[in-house]
Write a protein that binds this DNA or RNA. Structure first.
Ligand code: FES
Ligand code: FES
Lengths: 165, 165
DNA sequence: TAGAAATGGGACTGATTTGGTCCCGATTTG
DNA sequence: CAAATCGGGACCAAATCAGTCCCATTTCTA
């Protein structure tokens, strides 16, 4: 029903990986381990840093680490970091610019209810939950082999949706 | 966080309008009352009919009516009708085509949890809820005046997002 | 029976968003 | 100083979306 950005999908994959190995690692390193193309990792990381989910260290031997423990990073954070600001239709409270139709809008701010319901759902799931009971990185071995650039994804249709049932 | 199609937004507006006046009305009629351009109403209605939310009558004096009472139409229905099938990433159960990465995917089907959480939220809100405590169609008067074609929306940014807060 | 009124199903095009890649300046290590 | 990294965009190709139109089909009404 809702479509989630492919980049957001990647973000979750990277975050899960970071949640496992709690230490500073360079982007290319994370890329190798997850199979996500390096430039893409870089792009996603930028967003993640801006969103405050990840802390970066510059300079040689720099890299990225989770900014807080995995159980304090929720789904909503991740999605927001990648998907940008947010605000549902002009109808939503957030639209600070204000909606000129508000006075005669048949919805009259009822999207808000939907918004909050969904957000509540998304706040209820932490990175720890998602990374949790997962098989150890079996695939870590497979990394750094392959044709170099685009080993990983790209095959599976990719983009993320919201389940129907 | 999630972006909702503009068409889906329109769909909700139209459904709310239909929920109020429970009788068969032609597309152009509904268009006039809501301010949504006629061709767009037609397009949305087609999706709504295919989705089984609305029943159509063809021929002269035909039109559209809600297929069931408003309190039995949930947000998830509306969104699914417009946004198509659904399934979140290849990771999701639904992806019947099966995901070849499943064996070594760091998420290992955990999107499912997210999916279901969101869907549950969306199933909990009915059209009746949304249309409910709303001011009467004040704006109905404003209809059918204006330059004819694109009176209504188009001004407000339009597309729908999911609230951040 | 003929004609008008509606929906059904697509085709089509322009605009917008995404996905992915690169480049270059800033920062830190050693 | 040189090497390793991140930071911030610019950029372009591909996919999606939005919005319009057109024409066949169905049904009511004169
Ligand atoms: S269109 Fe702005 S309040 Fe609904
Ligand atoms: S990518 Fe297919 S199961 Fe995760």
């Amino acid at each position: 029903m809702f479509r989630i950005n492919k980049l957001t999908d990647y973000a979750v994959v990277l975050l899960v990986d970071m949640a496992r190995t709690q230490r500073v690692r360079a982007a290319h390193d994370i890329a190798a381990e997850t199979g996500v193309p390096v430039p893409t990792v870089a792009k996603v990381m930028k967003a993640l840093v801006r969103g405050g989910l990840v802390r970066s260290t510059r300079g040689a031997s720099g890299g990225y680490v989770l900014a807080r423990p995995a159980d304090r990073i929720v789904m909503a954070d991740m999605i927001e970091a990648l998907e940008g600001p947010i605000a549902m239709t002009a109808c939503v409270d957030h639209a600070d610019d204000g909606c000129e139709r508000e006075g005669f809008c048949p919805m009259a701010g009822h999207w808000n209810r939907v918004n909050h319901a969904v957000r509540r759902a998304l706040v209820g799931i932490t990175l720890a939950d998602v990374a949790g009971s997962c098989h150890p990185p079996v695939w870590a071995n497979r990394a750094s082999q392959g044709s170099g650039t685009s080993t990983g994804p790209r095959d599976s249709g990719g983009a993320v949706y919201l389940a129907s049932e």
